[in-house]
Design a binder for these strands. Sequence first.
RNA 1: GGGUCCGUAGCUCAGUCAGGCUAGAGCAUCGGACUUUUAAUCCGAGGGUCGCGGGUUCAAUUCCCGUCGGACCCGCCA
Length: 535
Amino acid sequence: MSEEIIGHGTWYDMMAKKIIEREQSLSRSMDNLRTEMGLGASGFPHIGSLGDAARSYAVTLALKNQGVNSELIAYCDDKDGLRKVPAGLTDKGLEKYLGYPVSSIPDPFGCHESFGKHMSSLLLEALDKCGIQYKYYSAKDVYEKGLILNEMRMLLSNSQQVGQIVKEQVGQETYTEVLPFFAVCENCGRIYTTRAYSFEPKTDKVHYKCEGLEIRGRLIKGCGHEGDADIKKGEGKLTWKSEFAARWKALDIRFEAYGKDIADSVKINDRICQEVLCFEPPSHAKYEMFLDKGGKKISKSAGNVFTPQVWFNYGSPQSLLLLMLKRFVGTRALAVSDIPVYMNELDYLEDVYFDKKNVGEKEAIRLKGLFKYCYLMAPPTKPSIHVPYNLLAFIVKLAPKDCLTTYVTEMLQSYGYLKKDQELDEDLLQRINYAANWIRDFEEIKETTVELTVEEKKAVSDLVNKLQTVADDPEKIQNSIFNAAKDNGVKPGALFRKLYQVLMGASQGPRLGPYVLAMGKQNVVDALQRSLKNN
RNA sequence: GGGUCCGUAGCUCAGUCAGGCUAGAGCAUCGGACUUUUAAUCCGAGGGUCGCGGGUUCAAUUCCCGUCGGACCCGCCA
C-alpha cells in the first residue's frame, strides 16, 4: 500500500505500471509495448466499440508517460464472415452474402470498396475525430502478406494440442476433430461454411469441405465443394479460438483489453499463445459491456444503432472520451439522453483542472488526470466559457430562427455568461450547434391548445391591443404585459405562464419583453389571436 | 452449467491506481434573497442502517467470504 501517486493518478497509469513490471520480469524488449484493439467490420460500430479504443489508447499514453514507447494497433477483422444482416440494412439484399468475408461483400452504400471497409471506416472516423492515434492493420492484408504465416503453421501443425486446450477450457470438442481454420471456399466464396480437416506442411495447404454452418439457429448452406486452401495466399483465416494468440505473437502485442463477452476466448488464446506458440500473452484488462438503456426512445425512428457519429451530433469528442475513460469496471448503460450530463461533467473537470473549484488534494489529482486523458494529454491551455447544456438548449429552443446567434449572444450577456459586447467564440458556437441538434431531434415543440379563463382571455386580447400601439422597447413591452394582467384582474404570474404556453409550449421561459421584440411583435400578436380563436 | 457487473439521499449516480476526520453531487422537495411577473441566479434546510450477515484491520461504502435482489455475458460464431 503505497501513498505514492503514479503518473496522473488514474487507472491507466496503474495499468501501465503493472505492464512495465511484468515485461521487465519477463525480460522482454521494452522498445515498443504495443497495445491492441479489434476493429469490428461486420456491422455498424456500436458506441461501445470506441471504448475499447479509448481505453487501449489511454494505456498507450500512460506507458509513454512512464517513459516507454508504445503504440496502439487497430486490427480490422475484415476477413470475418457476415453472420447476420445488420439491423437497418435488411432491405439491401445482403441475405445472399451471409457467410462471405465482409471484405469481399460489396458496399451496400456504394462508397467504399467493400462492406467491411465501409463499417470499419465509420469507427476509424470516430477515432480520428477523437484524436486517437493508431497503426492500422487489416486482417486481409495480414493473411495475404503472410505476416502470421509462421504462427499459422505452428497452430495447424499442433492442432490436436489446440483442440485439447479448447476442450479443457470450455468443454467444446469441435477442435479436437476440426482444424482451427476457416478456408474461403474456392467455389462459392463463403468462409464460414467450410470445415478444415487436414493440414499439409509441405505445401502449406489446408484440405476443407464446404459443408455449411449453423449460426444462432440459422443454417448457412455450404456448396458441398471440397478443396485445398493455400494459407500463404490468404485463402482463409484462423478461427478466433487461436487467431488472437497468433496475432499477439506475430505483432508482438503486450496489452489487450477485452469485453467480457469474449472472456473465454481470451483465456483459451492465452493458453494457446503460451503453450503452443511459446509466447507470453499480453497483459489484459477486462471491461464490461456498454448497454443501451432500455425503454428510452433513442433515434429508433431512424433504425440506427447508437454509433459514435450519433454522439458527435450532440456532444464533443472529449465528452465521449470522458464517458469511456471515467470508469473502467462496471456495466455502463448508455442513452443519448445522457450526453448533456457528460458535457457538463467535462466542464466541471475543467474547472477543477484550472483550480476554479476546490475539491481536496486527492480528488483534484484524480480529476485533473482524468481531464488530461479526456484530451489525450493535450488539454486546453485556457478555460472556456461554461454554459450549462440544458440552459443553452433552452435558449436555443426559444431563439427566433432568423437570428439564432444574435439572440443567444444577447441572452448569454444578460445572464452574465458573456461580458457586455463579448461575442461568441468558436467553442460556444460549437456548443450551440450541439444544443440546436439536440432540440431539433428530441424536443418537439408541443402544440397543445391552451385553455384560457374568461379573465385571461380578456387580458390576452387587451395585450394584443397594447402590443399594436406600444413602442419597440423591451421594457415597455414587459410593462404592457404586466398591465394587461392587472387591468383585467389576472395575477401576472398566471398570465405569464399562459403566454409561455401559447408562445413556446412551455410553462416557463425567458423575459418576455425582449423575446417579443426578437420574435417580431406582429408574429406574437398573430399567435395570441389564434389562441383566442381556439378558445 | 461457468462467469461478470450492479445494489449509497425521493430520483440519477460519484465516491474502486491507493480503507482514514461530520459519506458527496445533480435533479426533486421545502424555506429565504433578488427581479414591478415567469424563468434564471444566489443562500440555506431536510433527507442515508452505504442490500443483508460474517471476516481481515487501530479503522471497511472501499479488501475477503457468504447471502438476497436486479441486470448481463459465455456455453454456436466472433
